[in-house]
Simulated assay, not measured.
Amino acid sequence: MGSNNKVKAELLAARYVRNGDKPVAFVDESYRSKEQQRNAAPFYIATAVVIAPEEHEIMRKQLIEVAEAEYWHSTQAFQSEEGKAKFMALIDYVVDGVEPIVIAVQSEVDEKDSNLEEARLDCITALACELTSGAVHEPVELIVVEERHDQASRKRDEYIFSQARKQNLIPRTTAAFQASPSYEKLLWLPDVISYALYRNMAENEPEMYNAVSNRVRTIDVPSGRQVQPQKDA
């Protein structure tokens, strides 16, 4: 682990301590943009898996055992037959679990949103509202999002959460932490689920997502962040 990631991993560990015995949501994405496929409709998927803190360490170890690797990325893994087999093993792992899964999907993206940044804002905002509401599981106060590669994108993700707090869409106490799946293996779970739905929507391969769909709460997200503030936020 690089020195920068080591520092971030230590900061995340400290954040877990501050979060105490409350569950944590782990969030990752998948999408199809016009750049990827010009003649197909773009879409955006944001997936959250909610995990109780007492399960974190054992699940990290189990994920490494199932994937037989210290790092996982579904898109990369799917390029080989061995990777596909490990992906299916991870799908089976998800199926056997009990953790709440929430997916926010924007299937009709504004044609002006060429880089899908507005779709990301819409979906992650809707996802954060759901996660913090306590509607179907204990309210989450800490959301761990896969960190994007460039500083400008990371700043945009900070803005998503700061605006959600400012507009009383989520409680002001909600914390968001951007982390890498290289040191936080629990981010592998939303990555696998997001990619399964991607294969369903983009490639008409429904089997993988169908295996986990009965565990999923889905939010259909229109463009334009049509989300109402929480009354008690």
Rank of each mutant, 00 (worst) to 15 (best):
Q37E: 13
Q37A: 13
Q37I: 07
N39C: 06
N39L: 09
A40L: 08
A41K: 15
A41N: 14
P42T: 01
F43G: 01
F43H: 03
Y44G: 03
I45W: 10
A48Y: 04
A48R: 02
V49Q: 04
V49G: 01
V49N: 03
I51E: 03
A52D: 15
P53V: 01
P53A: 01
E55R: 11
E55L: 14
H56F: 10
H56I: 04
H56K: 01
E57S: 11
E57W: 04
I58C: 12
I58Y: 12
R60D: 06
R60Q: 07
Q62D: 15
L63P: 00
E65N: 06
E65V: 00
E68W: 00
E68T: 00
E68N: 02
A69G: 01
W72K: 00
H73I: 00
S74R: 04
T75A: 15
Q76L: 08
Q76W: 07
A77P: 07
F78Y: 15
Q79N: 07
Q79P: 06
Q79D: 02
S80I: 00
E81G: 05
K84P: 10
K86N: 03
K86R: 14
F87V: 02
L90E: 02
L90W: 01
I91P: 07
D92P: 09
V94A: 05
V94W: 04
D96M: 15
G97Q: 05
G97F: 06
V98I: 13
P100K: 05
P100M: 04
V102Y: 08
I103G: 07
A104Y: 10
A104E: 09
A104P: 13
V105S: 11
V105Y: 13
S107Y: 12
S107Q: 13
S107L: 10
E108I: 10
V109G: 12
V109L: 08
D110G: 09
E111H: 13
E111M: 11
K112Q: 13
D113Q: 06
S114R: 15
S114W: 13
S114C: 12
N115D: 15
E117D: 14
E118P: 07
A119D: 12
A119H: 07
C123T: 06
C123I: 05
I124W: 08
L127P: 09
A128W: 06
A128H: 05
C129T: 11
C129G: 10
C129L: 11
E130M: 03
T132F: 04
S133C: 05
G134Y: 01
A135Q: 13
V136M: 10
V136C: 10
V136P: 09
V136Y: 12
E138S: 05
E138A: 07
P139H: 00
P139F: 00
V140S: 03
E141V: 06
E141G: 11
L142A: 02
V144G: 00
V144C: 01
E146S: 05
H149L: 12
D150A: 10
Q151I: 10
S153P: 07
K155Q: 15
K155S: 12
R156C: 01
R156T: 01
D157P: 00
E158P: 00
Y159H: 13
Y159R: 14
I160C: 12
I160L: 11
F161Q: 08
F161V: 07
F161T: 06
Q163K: 11
Q163R: 13
Q163L: 13
A164V: 05
A164H: 05
A164N: 07
R165V: 07
R165F: 06
R165I: 07
Q167I: 08
N168P: 07
N168L: 09
L169E: 06
L169Q: 03
